[in-house]
Design a protein around this nucleic acid. Structure first.
Length: 469
RNA sequence: GGCCCCAUCGUCUAACGGUUAGGACGCCAGCCUCUCACGUUGGUAAUCCGGGUUCGAAUCCCGGUGGGGUCACCA
């Protein structure tokens, strides 16, 4: 029987959950689900200086919001230092690691020197073959990397990548303060946790041969690797905060739906026929690591926005209503739970004209309170010669029993036909009266959501405004 | 600079030796229409360059060029 698939997402908690990070998590999550495997969350916080609990919260919340749940963890590497020490001791005992007494300053100086001479900036092996007691004091521990031959990375996305071992550095696996470093911890944990597939960003590809050396030195089975092409900013460099929004929480705050974000991310480097819209169930069915493109992708904000607009219409309006609530609260439009049917009506009227929840909340404002008239709109449409028609329309609406859009539409149409007036003529003044703006959802939708009382009130208010101008 | 990866419209991508090089976002125009949108129809726009291999190359090979990643007591 085949080993069950075990994959992991292993972020370091040194900042917000980056969009590239969440894509890595997404790939791993999907891969695990597709193979009835386990998705493990591991926090790589060996750098005690830079790791914060706050950042762990951001990561957990971000994954949570993206609906990427994990089966094990979160493990924290800072709880596992003993394990790394054990393995380091083993390497030392077997002569596969050694103490290095070179200070950071010393190393820096020698690095500069060799770069100056056009040599590769690798550790020069100064302490590699020290005799007992030759140097002393504060020291790190370095892995004695094999120096001849080559390491072959058989990558699921990139194919066979060959690295020359003569290029390989003796990397530090334990700092002078006794803490373990990334390249050791990642190998030890992936091995001990039984990780079968390491799916991560291409920025880790060059780490892979050194990690393979470590797996072999430790006698661990080497997992399969898959290095996915990176997401780039508009300047074609690795996407970062420099490029504006780059964290999950920012997208969330900008009113994006997680479904859209996932949909967007999965289409980077992958496609299925001419399809653009993918729900998670469909992704699980159709996506495959084997189809993943090797070239990096530029993050396109416009396309994400379009996709979000699609998802705003795709999800049930009740659901969008739920998601909209925090944004309405944020702008002070509601203090308490509004009537759900009413909220749903608002969503239905706005979902075809809002690309994000933020935009929807902004556009919804007129439903909640009376606003200042848009100056241009009022001047153009709330004119003295429109007053009589507006007034008659008000009277007509006042007579309507059933304040539903079809009925209202029919009634007004009949009235206007009898008078020989086009709907167009009264539509704009009416719109300004009801919504204070020159563009809005359909008039009759607005009336229905607003209700008879507010509708008549607002028409009355507009008439008064005309009289006073 | 060393090592590694990558290369089709501006962007995301399809075409896995034979297509008028397809779709999507964006942009432009028409239609729809009570406004704005949505929708819809059409348009704009690409195989980085040079050599091979082949009857035939976006596709395979080689070499350039270009872009990216990585070279920490960060992960």
């Amino acid at each position: 029987m085949k080993n069950t698939v075990r994959v992991r997402f292993a972020p370091s908690p040194t900042g917000f959950l980056h969009i590239g990070g969440v894509r890595t998590a997404l790939y791993n999550w999907i891969f695990a689900r597709q193979h009835q495997g386990k998705f493990i969350l591991r926090i790589e916080d060996t750098d005690l200086e830079r790791s914060t609990d706050e950042a762990i919260d951001w990561i957990l919340n971000g994954l949570d919001w993206m609906h990427l749940d994990w089966d094990e963890g979160p493990y924290r590497q800072s709880d596992r230092f003993d394990l790394y020490q054990e393995q380091t001791d083993r390497l030392m005992a077997e002569g596969k690691a050694y103490r290095c007494y070179c200070s950071p300053e010393e190393l820096e100086a020698r690095r500069k020197e060799s770069i100056g001479k056009g040599q590769p900036a690798k550790y020069d092996g100064r302490c590699r073959d020290l005799k007992e007691g030759e140097r002393g004091g504060e020291h790190t521990i370095r892995f004695r990397a094999p120096q001849e031959g080559s390491v072959i990375v058989d990558d699921l996305i990139r194919g066979t990548v060959i690295f020359d071992e003569t290029q390989m550095d003796d990397l530090i696996i334990r700092r002078s303060d006794g803490s373990p470093t990334y390249n050791l911890t990642v190998v030890v944990d992936d091995a001990l946790m039984g990780i079968t597939h390491v799916i991560r960003g291409e920025d880790h590809l060059s780490n892979t041969p050194r990690q393979i050396q470590l797996y072999e030195a430790l006698g661990f089975e080497v997992p399969r690797f898959a290095h996915m092409a990176l997401i780039l900013g508009p300047d074609r460099e690795k996407l970062s905060k420099r490029h504006g929004a780059a964290s999950v929480s920012e997208f969330r705050n900008m009113g994006y739906l997680w479904e859209a974000l996932i949909n967007y991310l999965i289409r980077l480097g992958w496609s299925f026929e001419d399809q653009e819209i993918f729900a998670m169930e469909e992704i699980l069915e159709k996506w495959s690591l084997d189809d993943q493109r090797k070239s990096p992708s530029v993050f396109d904000h416009d396309k994400l926005e379009w996709l979000n607009g699609q998802w705003m219409k795709l999800l049930p309006p009740e659901e969008i209503g739920d998601r909209l609530l925090p944004f309405l609260e944020r702008t002070g439009l509601i203090e308490q739970e509004p009537d759900r049917d009413w909220l749903t009506g608002i969503v239905i009227s706005l979902r075809e004209r809002s690309l994000t929840l933020v935009e929807m909340a902004e556009k919804a404002e007129f439903y909640f309170r009376e606003l200042e008239y848009d100056q241009e709109a009022a001047e153009k449409f709330l004119t003295a010669d429109m007053a009589p028609l507006l007034e008659k329309t008000g009277e007509l609406l006042a007579k309507q029993e059933k304040f539903a859009q079809e009925a209202l539409h029919g009634a007004l149409r009949a009235f206007l036909d009898a008078e020989g007036i086009k709907l167009k003529v009264v539509a704009q003044p009416l719109r300004v009266a009801l919504t204070f703006r020159k563009d809005s959802p359909g008039l009759f939708e607005v009336m229905e959501v607003l209700g008879k009382e507010s509708t008549l009130e607002r028409i009355e208010k507009a008439l008064e405004w005309i009289r006073n101008r």
